[in-house]
Design a protein around this nucleic acid. Structure first.
Lengths: 231, 231
DNA sequence: TCAAAAGTGTTCTCCCTACACCCATGG
DNA sequence: CCATGGGTGTAGGGAGAACACTTTTGA
């Protein structure tokens, strides 16, 4: 480090913010929660919830706080994925943003939306976003796709109990692929991450389907040994 | 975004820096290039090269500039991997650092080291580092291990021409595993990323070994279709 | 002459793939 | 009674793990 400059750092400090790309899953499509901006710049445009870093909080704490303030979500899984530093990405002054993605069970957020004009959008129907948020979204999705190979974070998007079909639709939506029904189930059950419950449901019609839940203990076991989810 | 605060952002802005974890490979061990600090705080301790973000440069440009200034390296592969924001990570004032890792061919850097007291350290023999750089190094290594599954960035650490043995040792060093010689070669050749050259060398002793080079064209082909390197 | 390094081949096993088949239900 | 969706089984192919064999050289 060029330590002479450390104390007498003569350049103006940029503002530092965090943004939160919130993913959800409605049973068929991957969704993103957006907020409509009330003031300039980009008034009326949709954007990710976010805000400025306070003196005593980490980026993650900031992201969680903004999440709570703007969407009433609290316990979602949050992970920092990239910091965007283009000098002209904010027209007012220089703002760098530490971007996070959050995964949440979509049913939790139904309700307290109206105040902030928050709304879920399907990934294939996203409006043009404020600032460089279009770009940020693309990066977020590609990082989510990478991460899903190392941790079963997909489960954060599902309710506690879910059918094999729902799980498959989720992975298909995230990775934008199609799987063979039978083989997907076999592969998933191999990992020993799922607990087959005694309950079952009639999801849409026709036949009943078993319910599964995610087994956190098995996951912690697997983590120690190291493992990879392959798709 | 809480836009009321955007203009009249009343909190002091933290200083923003970049740090560069520089990985190299000497044919046997994974190495990290460290710089000995000349002034307080942590005077005499080893740390990563890094410095403060200037008003008109991106984080990546800053990382490349610091790399050049402090180690004379220029064309290494650089990738941002995490931003560290703990409020007390710098004892002087609040500094957040956008951390990058750089991969470079170790032979390129031999030479212009002395001025800055730069030195290569083996991963299994790292001294206690300044600031939170011990922690940053652990994160850097784990991100490097993740990335190596999606892009063949390992080749950035090898000279233009290399033997299969060297390639294997590199992957073994990065992932800290052992591979079967025959199976590793078969797997690598399957990807079609390597060009077998007509030349060969006597690496250490005993028998001659074929030389290979990394085939960028095949890699770009593969990227379009999407692929995974599995180990 | 022997050990080490490089190149090559072989076998076994397991898992992924691609289907096929059954069952239960609602229309 | 038939289309649909859930559950399960199976044959084939391919890839990885383990290991054996050969060749060439330096000590």
């Amino acid at each position: 480090m060029n330590t002479e400059q450390s104390f007498s750092y003569r350049y103006p400090h940029p503002a530092v913010a965090t943004d939160c790309v919130i993913f959800g899953f409605d049973g068929a499509n991957l969704k993103v929660l957006l907020i409509q901006r009330g003031i300039e710049p980009f008034k009326g445009s949709w954007a990710f919830p976010g805000g400025f870093l306070r003196p005593d909080e980490t980026a993650e704490a900031c992201a969680l706080r903004e999440l709570k303030e703007e969407t009433n979500l609290s316990a979602a899984y949050v992970e920092q994925f990239y910091t965007f530093t283009d000098p002209s990405r904010d027209p007012r002054e220089r703002v760098i943003t530490i971007a996070h993605f959050a995964l949440c069970k979509i049913q939790d957020v139904q309700g307290g939306d109206d105040a902030n004009k928050a709304q879920w959008f399907s990934m294939d129907n996203i409006p043009h976003l404020a600032f460089d948020h279009d770009y940020i979204l693309r990066v977020a999705l590609s990082k989510l796709r990478e991460q899903i190979h190392f941790r079963p974070i997909g489960f954060e998007l599902l309710p506690k109990k879910f059918t094999m079909k729902e799980l498959q639709l989720l992975y298909e939506a995230i990775l934008d692929v199609r799987f063979d029904r039978a083989n997907f189930a076999k592969k998933m059950l191999h990992f020993n991450l799922l607990t087959k419950l005694d309950e079952s449901v009639w999801p849409t019609a026709k036949r009943e389907a078993h319910l599964y839940s995610f087994n956190e203990d098995s996951y912690n076991e697997l983590k120690k040994k190291g493992f990879k989810l392959e798709f």
